[in-house]
């Protein structure tokens, strides 16, 4: 297969080169075209370009920025949607079981108020289930 393709390429490439060369015009034709081009047309082109109002650089920047507006708006929309989904998901997804077992707040535990601990992730400041039960029993005993 490879050899067949290579052989075919070897046959097509010289023809391809010949085609590219043959597409050229001859000197007489080029001279005829060239002699038709007058300087007046070029001069007119130059004059027209010189008379074009120069666009302010700020305007150019604004024009470029304007092209970016749809992309930026799309990014902002996606970000807003994502944030809304995340916040509503947290509100709906948090179950009573999670609240009781503390699964939803894994890693962050409440700590004794008034002590040296504030919000902390360390074990020594955390309230254990036994502490909670003891407090409840104490409260109901009163």
């Amino acid at each position: 297969m490879f050899w067949k393709n290579q052989k075919e390429d070897e046959r097509l490439d010289p023809l391809g080169r010949e085609i590219t060369r043959r597409a050229a015009m001859n000197d007489e034709e080029i001279e005829a075209i060239s002699s038709n081009i007058g300087y007046a047309a070029i001069h007119a082109r130059i004059q027209a370009r010189q008379n074009e109002p120069t666009v302010n650089e700020w305007m150019t920047t604004l024009m470029i920025a304007r092209q970016a507006i749809p992309a930026m708006a799309l990014v902002a929309l996606i970000a807003a949607g994502w944030m809304w989904l995340a916040s509503s998901g947290a509100a709906v997804g948090g179950s009573i079981d999670d609240a009781l077992t503390g699964a939803a707040g894994a890693g962050i535990e409440r700590v004794r108020a008034g002590g040296t601990c504030a919000i902390s992730a360390s074990d020594e400041c955390a309230i254990s289930t036994e502490d909670v039960l003891a407090t409840l029993v104490k409260e109901s005993g009163k």
């Binding site: 597409a23 075209i33 081009i37 047309a41 070029i42 082109r45």
Partner: peptide, 24 residues
């Protein structure tokens, strides 16, 4: 310049136009 341009375009009007553009 007309010779260079004629390598890429076939129509004389096109060649003339591109040559003018090159000089401008």
């Amino acid at each position: 310049i007309a010779r260079i341009t004629s390598r890429f375009f076939n129509r004389p009007e096109k060649i003339e136009e591109v040559v003018q553009e090159v000089f401008a």
